[in-house]
């Protein structure tokens, strides 16, 4: 987006994550997320190796606020959109019709249907906090300093500095689509296979809707309209004598 002044994004250093999951609770409280759901995750990748040569990686994870978000493309009611001013991908809860099409559309599986509202839900980078100049709840409370958030367009922001100093940088590529994720893993390579990143998926119902039903109805209405137009033209030519003789 050319006129996008800010470009908010996350930078995550898995080495600094201690899997305390304070972020999960902070997010739950801040955003009233029901107990059945969560907007963010910490993936415990499990103990790897044989005793005593072991490693274990904890990967904080949430919406990537993509440059080219497949969820926005999948949303039939434009409830999901990318904010022009700062690039945060949000859901207008009033506009959301709860169809759930955005869930499989997201290659990162960060979306869910909120069990209380019945609407699509996901990380919105705590826009209400960001509007007040606060960091998102997960970032603000991250004890290990693993989660960072800020304006990627600002070279002096915490995230830009972290990226500039990072030993390694990795974005999670989606399958078959260039999403342009704005979540960067630094210093500790993460494995997108293990994080089960997929291609965006469209359910059959939607394919039938888009490919068959809409063109079909348009054709039917169009044919009728054309027929009537011909009849009307004939009527105009013949005049209205038939009835009012």
């Amino acid at each position: 987006m050319a006129n996008q002044v800010k470009k908010y994004g996350f930078v995550i250093d898995p080495r600094r994550c201690i899997d305390c999951r304070a972020c999960l609770v902070a997010c739950r409280a801040e955003n009233n997320v029901p107990l059945d759901n969560t907007r963010i995750w910490v993936y415990d990748q499990g103990v790897v190796g044989e005793f005593p040569n072991l490693t274990q990686q904890f990967v904080p994870y949430n919406c990537m606020h993509c440059d080219n978000p497949p969820c926005v493309a999948a949303c039939p009611s434009q409830a999901t959109y990318k904010r022009k001013a700062d690039g945060i991908v949000v859901i207008d809860q009033d506009a959301c019709i709860g169809c759930g099409l955005c869930l499989p559309a997201c290659p990162y599986h960060v979306r869910f249907v909120n069990t209380q509202t019945g609407k699509a839900d996901k990380c919105d980078a705590c826009v209400q906090r960001v509007a007040q100049g606060e960091a998102p709840a997960c970032v603000a409370t991250c004890i290990g300093g693993s989660r960072l958030f800020g304006d990627l367009n600002d070279p002096l922001s915490e995230v830009s500095i972290a990226l500039a100093q990072a030993k390694t940088i990795k974005q999670l590529p989606a399958v078959g689509v260039d999403t342009g994720p704005n979540l960067y893993y630094i210093n500790d390579p993460v494995d997108e296979q293990q994080l089960a990143v997929t291609a965006p998926h469209m359910p059959a119902s939607e394919a039938i809707y888009q490919k068959l039903i809409i063109p079909g109805i348009l054709a039917a209405v169009g044919t009728m309209f054309l027929g009537q137009a011909v009849a009307f033209a004939k009527q105009l030519r013949k005049g209205e004598s038939e009835y009012d003789e």
């Binding site: 305390c20 999951r21 304070a22 999960l24 609770v25 902070a26 409280a29 801040e30 603000a140 409370t141």
Partner: peptide, 25 residues
């Protein structure tokens, strides 16, 4: 109570709370 944030003025929290602190609600 809507949300508990760490108090940056307190040297024991420095603006952060752990999962237990966040769950005080």
């Amino acid at each position: 109570i809507h949300k508990l944030d760490g108090n940056p003025a307190n040297a024991h929290s420095n603006g952060k709370l752990c999962a237990r602190g966040q769950s005080g609600i």
